[in-house]
Design a protein around this nucleic acid. Structure first.
Lengths: 224, 224
DNA sequence: CAAGGGTGTGACGCGTTTGTGACTGGTTTT
DNA sequence: AAAACCAGTCACAAACGCGTCACACCCTTG
């Protein structure tokens, strides 16, 4: 079994060393402006805090990608607040996925172990986590508390777009455009059917209803 | 290409003018207690320091939002320390995002350029705060001290319009027009019912009564 | 080519929203 | 003091918006 090397920009490392029983499978290293302090082999996972002096989170992201030692690392951006623009910026800066913080010990290990057990390769995995909902862009799969949600392609795209803009009312037009539908012009009422199907799928996976209807306007993905 | 107008509360402006090569694309202005010194057109970006000599950053934030000249500006709050509570306060006061300071030239340009590349998505004020009342234009939700106010579409539009013109008597005609009702002509007495319903909704959320009746004239949103 | 699942659409029914007239209680004017 | 005026509230009917269903048309797969 490979050793997984975990880099963190916060103090969580020490706390994790106490927490994890089988330390041989992990190494922890504090991530500073100069990059990792140790040179390591094997899979690497970096958790980068968004909130650092001078927006260093994004900069750190770019450096990790540029640094040959860490170019292959799986980079998770830790956002403290949920801002769609920040999320986009994080991904553009080279992050593979992100979590809406605060980062907890279990959150870290959950993700690392989940990825490990699935035997995922190095390919960049885009993953969002919003409350109980997880969206895995690589596997094209969504989960509610680890419970898979069976979605048809269009429903997945819809969920993804909604989740990318949480707490924001999206009109039916927004959604049609957001899914890249243009020809032929889609009837706005069709969106209602999409939403209905998506809701049913989420409920079938034991999930709640994060999709709130805003009468006469559109729909919101409700975070929290 | 649009010109981006950048307001700063610190001395960074002069330093930036040296730094930026293509100055035609930017204007810089020092932001004082009285607001911007120049009246400008086009996208505006304000960087507000948390700690200011004359008045608190939060207050400045609110003034920018209340001032018609700068209501649409994208406001970035510059925090000296990373305090979650401060961050929340900044957003509540109308800031669109924040940076953990000290503010550097690259930080400023990073963000502004990111905004530009974002394209047309720029939307007017996302959120504003008046006393205990918060109106989130993105989520289309109103709160009284964090307590959500459940509003019907028309009530939300009404509250929004009233809150956009605080301390100003609005006639029933103003309100009808302000909500974009035209066909069929609305009976002015109907406004009374709207107000009544809105008041009840606010009260149901534990709120006070910011809507004052001005006999024989109309209604005012009382900012206190 | 047949079978099967995914997707858009029109139609139906239900619950919610909303404008209005009427009534009431209070205030100003005559 | 009476009359006129004005705003708050209620009940109700009509309009509206949404959820849902069945069906037809894909487009893929065997």
């Amino acid at each position: 079994m490979d050793v997984v090397n975990i880099f963190l920009t916060s103090e969580l490392g020490e706390s994790l060393e106490d927490f994890v029983h089988d330390q041989r499978r992990f190494t922890f290293d504090r991530l500073g402006a100069e990059g990792p302090r140790r040179l390591v082999e094997g899979p690497m996972w970096a958790f980068v805090d968004w909130v650092m002096p001078e927006l260093a989170g994004l900069e750190m992201c770019r450096r990790l990608r540029a640094d040959a030692r860490t170019a292959d690392a799986h980079v998770t951006m830790v956002l403290e607040e949920d801002d769609p623009e920040d999320r986009r910026r994080a991904l553009r800066a080279g992050a593979d996925d992100y979590v809406i913080g605060p980062l907890t010990r279990t959150a870290v290990l959950d993700r690392v172990l989940a990825l490990q057990s699935r035997g995922v390769e190095r390919q960049p995995t885009r993953r969002f986590e919003l409350g109980a909902l997880t969206i895995d862009m690589a596997a094209l799969q969504a989960r509610w508390n680890e419970q898979p949600i069976v979605l048809r392609p269009n429903e997945f795209r819809l969920l993804r777009f909604l989740a990318e803009n949480p707490n924001r009312v999206l009109t039916r037009e927004d959604l049609i455009n957001g899914l890249g539908k243009r020809e032929p012009p889609i009837d706005e009422r069709t969106v209602d059917v999409w939403i209905g199907r998506l809701r049913r799928a989420i409920k079938a996976a034991g999930g709640g209803n994060p999709l709130r209807t805003v009468r006469s306007l559109g729909y919101v993905f409700d975070l929290s």
